[in-house]
Design a protein around this nucleic acid. Structure first.
Lengths: 327, 327
DNA sequence: GATCGTTATGAAAACGTTTTCACATCCTGT
DNA sequence: ACAGGATGTGAAAACGTTTTCATAACGATC
């Protein structure tokens, strides 16, 4: 029925060991290699990856666990990771946690059961804080977010500086009652919030921060509530692209003019942010670079498991648009 | 070192067969089941999925091969598929082909080697047309696109009607020089183009159709070229959300007022389409339903492999916005 | 010309499970 | 009290590969 390596061996007139070597990187004479390749074509043989992995203990698979596949930031990073992985002959299992620690735990267990070569992971804060250096049985690189210091390799944005850049820009434009709406689940949102607060204080301004689930719906609801208050902020900073979209919707609903009634700034230079009127001021993240660096760290960790933990911090780029222009 | 089922068996004082049954669905006494579960906890045992799959020949895995992960349509469908799969105790391998037949072939081979339970696939036209009923060794459901009639189960939009709806709407608004810019790689784009042409003809209008790679960059370039002509169309229909974005950009660049100088309509009710000014008229696709139906078809096909091929056609919903309003 | 390394090959073991087969044991109905 | 069907369990085979081990053939080196 289904053709196995012994069928190929029989067709080529050699042993299964030789077939295995001819297909892999064993020492085999050129003549035999050709015979084997012909036999593979003739029989339509497809190796069974489960058997191969079981015996060789090399899964050639990396797990990619992201927090929200709807967030273009993560799809962009995914593409970079996928490209690098396939270039290296590795497969990728992509998982989506929805920022839910229970799903994170489930996927981490799955990764163990798959005996993956390594994992790239954007964890929630609660999960990251529970993960020490040796609680994971596979090499792991955190991405976009970091956990316990020194526990895992990571590649992150310089979040505090990026947030400060936005504050500085808004202050320079003459805004002073500047609010910040940040995600509640990630270390990254916390860092952006801290950077925001520090910059506000530095300008002798009072930080006004709130946090909420990092998606468009929650951000819209909270922004609408906040902006309905009599002492509403005159500028708002959002900690990711989805939340920025929520804030734009809230401003629309309340008929607030941007930037006249409300200035807006956020993270992630998503394609739509320069299509709305006015264009939105954002911090652009080097998404491809983040994915590529994560794969590099992961491969190097696999190569030498005992090297010291490394943290790569990348800078964002401020893209200034109309949403923060002082009327 | 790594704990296997025999360690659990030893710890529980039973045979490996019994452990296997206790963890699976074999007949086991309650007392023994508890012993085994305790032993699993004590040893930290994690089953080896490769070994399990090899022996049981049940991969419990479905492959999801999409054309472009950057297209929110596919990420939305992916989420629906993923949810249904995990609810059924199945894992998902998500692959991204970039509309490239070579990558499609690579991923199809990967699926064979993984011995997946089934595949959900959005193929390019060239690949789909080469796939007969028995060229794939696993149950397959086409999604968003269809191939040879009767070859594979599929769930698609009623593309021709949807395109006709847009034409009818534009005609009703008083537009007559209506162009159509369609993707060049999928059956779906062809069907939309055909529906567009038929509707135009029905209204005694001349179809003006072009086709191009279905992404924002290519669509923007072609739209810019087209709209720079002296006899440029006064309305444009785009065959997906990315292309619609490209067209909006081209209109911006050429300083064409929408809908005054150019009306725009397209597919996919993406979140940004009602944030731009004016809002864009689109056909909304039932993305969650598409994913759910695909999983249903796939499971039923796995259940009874010899049942007749089925095609589920879903209707789009027209969302009329300012971009098609006759000034 | 004997000895040594290299290279190419096959037989068989190994990977970690599930499943088959055989065999007790227990319950049920007569 | 006994046949017969569930029910629970263990020993061993099986899944399809790769890897180990042994060996043969061949040049090169002394």
């Amino acid at each position: 029925m289904t053709v196995g390596i012994r069928d190929v061996a029989r067709a080529a007139g050699v042993s299964t060991a030789t077939v295995s070597r001819a297909l892999g990187r064993g020492p085999v004479s050129d003549a035999v290699r050709e015979q084997v390749e012909a036999a593979v074509r003739a029989t339509g043989y497809r190796p069974n990856l489960s058997a191969r992995r079981l015996r060789s203990k090399a899964a050639q698979t990396i797990g990619l666990i992201v927090a929200d596949i709807r967030n273009p930031f993560f799809t962009a990073v995914s593409r970079a990771v996928e490209d690098a992985a396939y270039a290296a002959g590795m497969r990728v299992i992509l998982c989506n946690t929805d920022e839910d620690p229970a799903r994170e735990a489930m996927y981490l267990r799955l990764m163990e059961e798959e005996r993956v070569t390594g994992v790239i992971f954007a964890p929630t804060k609660v999960t990251a804080d529970g993960l020490t250096e040796d609680s994971l049985s596979f090499p792991t690189v955190f991405i976009d977010r970091s956990g316990l210091p020194g526990a895992h390799d990571s590649v992150v944005l310089d979040n505090a500086s990026a947030a400060a850049t936005l504050v500085d820009h808004l202050v320079a434009q003459g805004f002073s009652r500047i609010g910040g709406l940040f995600g509640s689940t990630s270390s990254t949102a916390r860092e952006r919030q801290a950077g925001y607060a520090a910059a506000m204080t530095r300008h002798d301004l009072t930080p006004l921060a709130r946090s909420v689930a990092p998606n468009a719906t929650a951000a819209e609801a909270e922004a609408a509530r906040w902006l309905s208050q009599s002492d509403r902020p005159e500028a708002l900073i959002l900690s990711n692209g989805l939340m920025l979209m929520g804030a734009v919707r809230a401003a629309r609903t309340l008929a607030l003019r941007v930037p006249g009634d409300l200035a807006l700034a956020g993270f992630d230079n998503e394609p739509w942010t320069d299509l709305v009127e006015p264009g939105l001021t954002v911090i652009e993240q080097p998404v491809a670079e983040i994915g590529a660096q994560a794969m590099r760290l992961l491969f190097e960790r696999i190569e030498s498991p005992d090297q010291p933990v490394r943290k790569v911090t990348l800078s964002g780029r401020a893209v200034l648009r109309g949403s923060t222009r002082r009327g």
